[in-house]
Design a protein around this nucleic acid. Structure first.
Lengths: 356, 356
DNA sequence: AGTAATCTCTGGATCGATACAGAATCTGAA
DNA sequence: TTCAGATTCTGTATCGATCCAGAGATTACT
């Protein structure tokens, strides 16, 4: 059994409080006594105050939770999520705070419990779907949180670091439309829960499940509606997951068809890279007959080497700011609602539309 | 103030224990009473047992620490570290365990304290230098840990998931040597603490600070010694960090020189990619006059697209196994010491050596 | 009916520390 | 010498739960 504070106190012949002070408030006792205490502690093999007991008494933990409402390992699979995490960790470092990554079970009840059982002082919630249950649970515990998307019931005190998804998406789509593309496809991840990979019939963007996807699709739609390509004329492609493979698989049938789109606008770089994979796999003849332009979203590192035209959002900055907002809340509530700028990055993956 | 267990107990008119059981041991009370209790809890806004108090009493936390002895944000910057984390998180998910990522201050005393203050049940230590102080601190707390490298004082109970660095490095180096390269350079990150970027005079590999680097350099050395290229004849290049930029910067002077090496063997893919960057930046004339082969180490995703010849080590597997070993220790101590297989991946970045 | 076994629930002890008010000792100035 | 003020240390209450031995009430069995 590891010795406790009490054991050290007994060994030195002082009170528990004094030993505690030796560790946590050195100014409260003479340096000589403090030295004696630490010495004795070393001798007994006392490793310092028990972190859990300390948190209980102090009422704070020194850690913030980072919540991915999907599978935790996703956080390390998606390059953009990784950059977000990098930003969060940078802020955490500055504040001497640890990061607790919590696996979220698929069962909603268990998921809620996971959030309720996390020993943290607050949460950074990475939004990639419906996380209202999580915000509920966090709020129920009275803990502060910051999200990466404006919440629908967003009050003035609701903190977030987000981008204007719709405007950002519109900027790439305008670029594509401006180059003459009219037969286009929009590609998104799990647009409708449970839908199969491939073309999807959607009455409108409102049917998209995730707010982020909805926002991006809206931007795409707006741009093409502005040049006379109305909603039913565009193809909506559903990918079964946010991965290259899923992106490639989703477009494949369309590419094999007689008149493929001249451009595919994807809701993420990862999906877009998948499209490029699928295009590269076509035989050269069809490739020259039917050139296909591609755009992504996020501007991850691979996008640059792949020459992918995309819209950049500052991932690390997003994470850093979110954590900063949580750990060091601004006095002005308005300062807690941040909309980051995005930037259209033009590369080689979009060409002028071929004359039909 | 949030209500406590006691408040709920009072409201229902039962004892604290019973309310506690309602949450943690449903089989210990009648379903009817349990329902009434949970109902009352909802009514009062009781969010469930306080995680910290629970851990204190139960004596375990439900989280494991992941320790990067360098800067925490490094963990998300280095692709191999990210894959390791992905593996750890996968295992954590299976065991319903959270991951605590702890920022480690540069000051050694504070660093030790950070480890001592972490509320966790054990540690996965990602080895990338000297972490003996951390292992000491963890051991001092009586917590279990698993490392990613054989420790020097490794007893039979010492758990780790590692690779044979030397043999792995030798396999790529043999490949390069077999293709006739004799004028070569070895590139490593921070080979000697504080050394500047660029060529380094080393009496032998033993002078390399980090065990991992030492192992890899040894493998490189062995391979070339076997074909008659002895240590003083090879150039050792020091990179100031594990990044593309650092890799590129480290080789630049050598490439600019009159007789550059015909091959550069890097201790990591990231560095190797940096070398490729530097090579691509040369003017075409010198590029054809002095072709340079390059090898990496790890086989990260970018290596494939860059055509980098490298040696693959299973990063996710490493993380997964490490966490698994920690969370579910094997009865046999020998099973706690894992050496993973590596594989030479031949791509296009290594060509036959030009005839001198 | 009698007794054992089972099911529910209770209460005090405990996990390992920190907070805070106050006691004891020491300083220095009048 | 005396007394206010600073310094150093103590002791009790407390953070919010879980554990465990055992009390009552029920059920089961012979």
């Amino acid at each position: 059994m590891k010795p406790t504070l009490q054991a050290v106190a007994d060994a030195v012949g002082v009170s528990r409080s004094t030993v505690s002070n030796a560790y946590s408030r050195p100014d409260q006792l003479s340096p000589a006594l403090r030295a004696r205490i630490l010495e004795a502690a070393r001798g007994l093999g006392y490793p310092g105050p028990n972190p859990t007991a300390r948190s209980l008494r102090r009422g704070y933990v020194g850690a913030i939770g980072v919540l991915f409402t999907s599978q935790l390992s996703y956080a390390f699979t998606d390059p953009f999520a990784v950059r977000f995490l990098a930003g969060v960790s940078r802020a955490a470092e500055r504040h001497d705070t640890s990061l607790l990554l919590i696996p979220v079970p698929t069962d909603l009840n268990q998921a809620r419990q996971a959030v309720e059982n996390a020993a943290v002082d607050g949460f950074c919630v990475y939004c990639a779907g419906d996380e209202s249950w999580a915000l509920d649970a966090i709020g129920g515990r009275g803990l502060p949180y910051v999200t990466t998307a404006m919440q629908s019931d967003s009050g003035p005190a609701q903190r977030y670091v987000a981008i204007d998804e719709r405007a950002a998406a519109r900027s790439v789509a305008d670029h594509v439309a401006g180059l003459g593309h009219r037969r286009v496809a929009f590609l998104g991840d799990t647009i409708v829960p449970g839908a199969p990979s491939g073309p999807l019939r959607l009455a409108g963007v409102d049917e998209a499940g995730h707010p982020t996807t909805r926002g991006r699709l809206s931007g795409f739609r707006d741009a093409f509606a502005a040049v006379g390509v109305d909603w039913p004329a565009v193809t909506v492609l559903n990918a079964a997951g946010n991965s290259r493979a899923a992106g490639a698989e989703a477009v494949r049938p369309l590419l094999a068809g007689g008149s493929p789109p001249t451009a595919v606008l994807a809701c993420s770089d990862v999906l877009a890279l998948g499209v490029l994979d699928a295009l590269a796999a076509r035989d050269p003849a069809t490739a020259t007959r039917h050139p296909v332009s591609v755009t992504g979203f996020d501007d991850i590192a691979e996008a640059a080497t792949a020459g992918l035209t995309t819209v950049r959002q500052p991932g690390e900055e997003k994470g850093r700011l979110a954590a900063e907002l949580l750990l060091d809340p601004p006095a002005e509530p308005a300062a807690g609602q941040v909309l980051l700028d995005t930037e259209l990055i033009v590369r080689t993956s979009v060409r002028t539309a071929p004359r039909s």
